[in-house]
Simulated assay, not measured.
Amino acid sequence: EYVNGTTGNSLTWEVFNATWYSVWLDGSMHSSANLTGSVVTVDVDGLAIGVHNVTVEIGNEGNQTAVSTVLVTVIAVPHVLRIISSPSSFLMADDMNQTTLVWTVLASHPDSYSIQVNGSEQENGSFSSGNISFVFIHQGPGMYEIVLKLADMNGTFVTAIIFALVMSATGSSTNSEASFSGGMVLLSLLALAALPIIRRKEVRS
Rank of each mutant, 00 (worst) to 15 (best):
T12M: 04
N154F: 03
H138Q: 02
D95L: 14
D152I: 06
E123P: 09
A178T: 06
A18T: 04
K149R: 14
I49L: 05
A66V: 05
L192A: 14
I58Q: 02
G155S: 00
S168N: 08
A191P: 01
L186A: 10
Y21N: 06
M153D: 10
Y21S: 05
V56F: 03
H79W: 10
G183Q: 08
E1H: 05
S129G: 05
T12Y: 01
E177G: 12
L186Q: 13
S88Y: 10
N131S: 14
S31D: 15
L165Q: 05
A191R: 10
Y113V: 09
T99L: 12
K149L: 15
T104M: 09
P196E: 03
T159A: 09
I132K: 04
I49Y: 01
N97H: 14
V158C: 03
M92K: 01
I132F: 01
T36N: 13
S205V: 13
S128P: 02
V56D: 08
H52F: 04
Q122V: 15
A33W: 09
S32A: 15
F163W: 08
F16R: 14
S89P: 03
N34I: 14
I161G: 05
M153R: 12
A164G: 01
Q64S: 12
I146H: 01
G125H: 03
S86I: 08
N34K: 14
L148A: 01
I146S: 04
D95S: 12
I115W: 03
T69C: 09
V203Y: 08
G125E: 02
L47H: 05
A178M: 11
A18K: 00
N4W: 12
G125Y: 07
L101R: 05
V135D: 08
T159R: 00
T104Q: 11
W13A: 03
S179C: 06
A191E: 11
R204A: 13
D45K: 08
F134D: 04
W20C: 12
N124I: 13
T55Y: 08
P110Y: 10
F134R: 02
F163P: 03
S114R: 15
S126L: 15
H138C: 03
L71W: 15
A193R: 05
A107Y: 06
W24K: 08
T100P: 05
N154H: 02
K201T: 13
N53D: 15
